[in-house]
C-alpha cells in the first residue's frame, strides 16, 4: 500500500503537468510564451528569500553550534523519542506558524545538519509544505481591510496548524520510517 502510494507521488506531478498542457492545447493558449512569463517570477522569488534564509540559517546554525540545542533537547527528548520525532525538527514546528521564509531557512539548516535523505529532512519538508503562516496571513488579510477584532479566526487557524502538525508527524512515520 505504502509502496503504491509512494509511486503515486512520482506520477502526480507529471499528471498535473499533462492536464495543464492539454488544456492549453484545447484552449489554444500560447503555452510557450505563457511559460516564459511565469518562469520569470521564479527568479524573483528565489532572490527575495535570500535575506530570510541567511538570517534564520545563520542564527540557527550558531544556536546549534553553541551547544544550546543540547540543553533544550535534554528536556524534550523523552517526548520526542516516544513518537520517534528527530529533535532537529523542533525548530520547524516553532517557526512554521510565524514565518514561511524562516521555516525554509530552518529546513535548509536541517538538511545542512542531517543530510538531504534523512528522516528529519523528510519530516521537516512535509511539515513545511503542509502549512501556511497563520500569523502572516491574518495580518495581511485583516490588515488590508482594517479589521481589528479577529474573533476566533486566529484560534481556528492555530488549532488547524496543530492538527496538521500531528498529522504530518504521523503520516511521515508511516511513509518514511
Amino acid at each position: 500500500m505504502i509502496k503504491f502510494l509512494t509511486s503515486l507521488s512520482l506520477y502526480l506531478l507529471p499528471l498535473i503537468i499533462t492536464i495543464i498542457l492539454c488544456s492549453a492545447l484545447v484552449k489554444k493558449t500560447p503555452a510557450y510564451e505563457s511559460f516564459i512569463e511565469g518562469a520569470r517570477d521564479g527568479f524573483n522569488i528565489a532572490i527575495k528569500i535570500i535575506p530570510y534564509l541567511i538570517a534564520i540559517m545563520a542564527a540557527s546554525a550558531m544556536f546549534r553550534a553553541s551547544g544550546a540545542v543540547d540543553i533544550l533537547g535534554k528536556f524534550l527528548n523523552p517526548v520526542f523519542e516516544t513518537f520517534k520525532i528527530p529533535p532537529q525538527t523542533l525548530m520547524v514546528m516553532i517557526t512554521r506558524s510565524l514565518s514561511g521564509s524562516a521555516t525554509l531557512g530552518v529546513l535548509g539548516d536541517i538538511i545542512n545538519q542531517t543530510g538531504v535523505d534523512s528522516y528529519a529532512t523528510k519530516l521537516a519538508a512535509i511539515i513545511t509544505g503542509s502549512s501556511e503562516t497563520t500569523f502572516y496571513v491574518a495580518s495581511v488579510y485583516f490588515g488590508a481591510v482594517g479589521i481589528k477584532k479577529f474573533r476566533y479566526a486566529l484560534l481556528s487557524g492555530i488549532m488547524a496548524d496543530i492538527t496538521g502538525l500531528i498529522a504530518a508527524i504521523y503520516i511521515a512515520s508511516i511513509f518514511f520510517l
Binding site: I17, P30, G38
Partner: peptide
C-alpha cells in the same frame, strides 16, 4: 511557476 502560469492563462 512557468507551468502554472500556463494553467492560469488557459483558464484552468
Amino acid at each position: 511557476l512557468g507551468i502554472v502560469n500556463i494553467a492560469k492563462d488557459c483558464g484552468l
